[in-house]
Amino acid sequence: MSTEPMHPDQYALDDDLVRRLIAGQFPRWAGLAVERFASGGTVNAMYRLGDAMVVRLPLVAGGIGDVLSEREWLPRLAPLLPVAIPEVLGAGEPAEGYPAPWSVYRWRVGETPEAGALRDPVGLARDLAGFVEAMWRVTLPAAPTAHRGGPLESLDEETRRAVALLRDIPQEGVDCDAAEAVWQDGLRAPGATGPQVWLHADLMPGNLLVDGGRLASVIDFGCAGAGDPACDLFPAWNLLPPVGRRAFREALGVDDPTWRRGRARTLSQALIALPYYRGTNPAMARNARHVIREVLGEHA
């Protein structure tokens, strides 16, 4: 994990501050060990608290809404989903000079899956499809708007700016003309015609936990809400190999326009992430490169 801050306005955090926050607000846990947990997350820092809990604290002001949204929606979503999701055990408030709300969660057991090293890619693909389908069936009213869950056109300016940045980083070797062609194809695809559906909206490998090669838990619901179902097709390109990608699509029964929008959305996220995180978050940059290779290779 890079020691450089990922964001110019990032909050300062360390083990000692987290210990003080815990001692001040949850004295029953004050004697437990606190240790930073290395992850590729971009919005929150994670600290193990003893053996059975984890503390998640926003790194930037933009993450505050995610914390509050999870507190409201996780208990309501949990009984509707086929795998474990985060459980909030404690709601922390700003203190000790730290300006944001934060939460203590139950620790979920499992490993982060790695593209190219999946034990059961087809089984995992079907598990992921089952989770996505269950999210799409959720009917809880008054859903928030999913992060980046709106029309694909809303991402156009940011995506084109990212392609322009990558043209100036030739060492990354991105075929920017091909990337623009895939993006244009997504924009040409018909938009979603049905009602918006509930989405996780951030199905990155770092937000999945597997056990024995199968999906055990999905974490980080900070982006969750209603939007275009294409937003939850990310695993097809950011994690699954071609055989798993086909199984994922078949299990969901996704039509061609939705698939094209999903591919474009996944590529857009990778194109934006790569120039931003290449010097500060190796995991995010590595996944972005993987997505770009997979999408452009499939579209060639």
Rank of each mutant, 00 (worst) to 15 (best):
S2C: 11
S2E: 11
M6N: 04
H7K: 05
H7P: 06
D9L: 10
L13C: 07
D15R: 02
R20M: 07
L21V: 13
I22A: 03
G24T: 13
F26G: 05
L32D: 12
E35R: 14
F37L: 15
S39N: 10
N44G: 00
N44C: 01
R48Y: 13
M53S: 09
V54L: 15
V54S: 13
R56F: 10
L59V: 08
V60E: 10
G63Y: 11
D66I: 03
V67F: 02
V67K: 01
E70T: 05
R71P: 04
W73M: 00
P75H: 06
P75M: 07
L77D: 00
L77S: 01
P79V: 00
L81N: 05
V83L: 13
I85N: 02
I85R: 01
P86R: 01
E87D: 02
G90C: 05
V104D: 06
W107N: 01
T112Q: 14
A117W: 12
R119M: 13
R119S: 14
R119W: 10
P121S: 00
A129W: 10
A134Y: 09
M135E: 04
W136Y: 14
R137D: 14
V138P: 02
L140I: 15
T145R: 15
T145N: 13
H147I: 15
R148L: 13
G149N: 06
P151I: 07
S154V: 09
S154Q: 15
S154R: 15
E157T: 14
T159H: 11
A162S: 09
A162Q: 06
V163C: 06
V163P: 01
A164R: 12
L166C: 10
R167G: 09
R167L: 13
V174Q: 02
D175V: 10
A178E: 10
D185P: 00
L187F: 08
G194I: 04
L199T: 05
H200E: 04
A201L: 12
L203H: 03
M204P: 02
L209E: 09
V210Q: 07
V210K: 06
G212W: 14
G213V: 12
G213T: 10
R214V: 12
L215R: 07
V218M: 04
F221C: 00
F221L: 02
G222E: 03
A224T: 12
A224P: 02
A224H: 04
G227L: 01
A230D: 01
P235D: 04
W237F: 15
R245P: 02
R249F: 09
A251I: 08
A251H: 11
W259K: 04
R263N: 07
P275Y: 14
G279C: 06
N281H: 08
A285I: 07
A285Q: 03
R289H: 12
V291M: 06
V291Q: 06
R293V: 11
E294C: 15
E294P: 02
